[in-house]
Amino acid sequence: MTDHIDGALALRWMNRFTEDFHDAQQALTDLDRQAGDGDFGTNIASALRKVVAELPTAEDATFASVFTATANGFLATGGTSGPLFGMWFRAISRSTAPEGPDTGLLAQGVAAGLAKVQQLGGASVGDNTMIDALAPASQTLLDASTSGLTIDKALTSAAGAARAGAASTADLLAARGRASYVGDLALGVEDPGAVTVAMFFEAGAAVVSG
């Protein structure tokens, strides 16, 4: 079992995430239609097409180059979710070591990205946004790092926390983001940004454990 996420693993993580997102895109767009303006799926899919075009080859891939390419793809995308995801991935790309990040460095990068997204977007836990999945996932990773969990167990725990956080948004009234304009209509609908965060960690847990 690996202690680090090297370039090859990072590349498999991102490819897996892209495939999973593609499979779920219609369902996420439907969620956004109920609570937002319906462009979430299209925007993120457009970002991921740019990401795939920018990803390094398997021979050249480092954790930093994979996540930098991911950040750049998202930052070249319209809307507000795309650039926020971009700044989150950018923070993750910066917290690494030559052989790739261990649990501690990954946890620090994810936490730094969370802080950046909160600073830029102004959302807190409970506002029915991507933060509702990101914050518990980040805390779980930090706890896993403190208790010395291996990176596969850490990512699996983080994925579970993110998924539970995404599920919690179904019961929330949005205070930020597009869903804040429709009030009660968004009740019972999971935030597509939070669901996407959960999918990202699930993809990571799957490739690192597999």
Partner: peptide, 10 residues
């Protein structure tokens, strides 16, 4: 940007 949409950060 596109019609009535912000240009990207990039």
């Amino acid at each position: 940007g596109a019609v009535f949409a912000s240009p990207t950060a990039s």
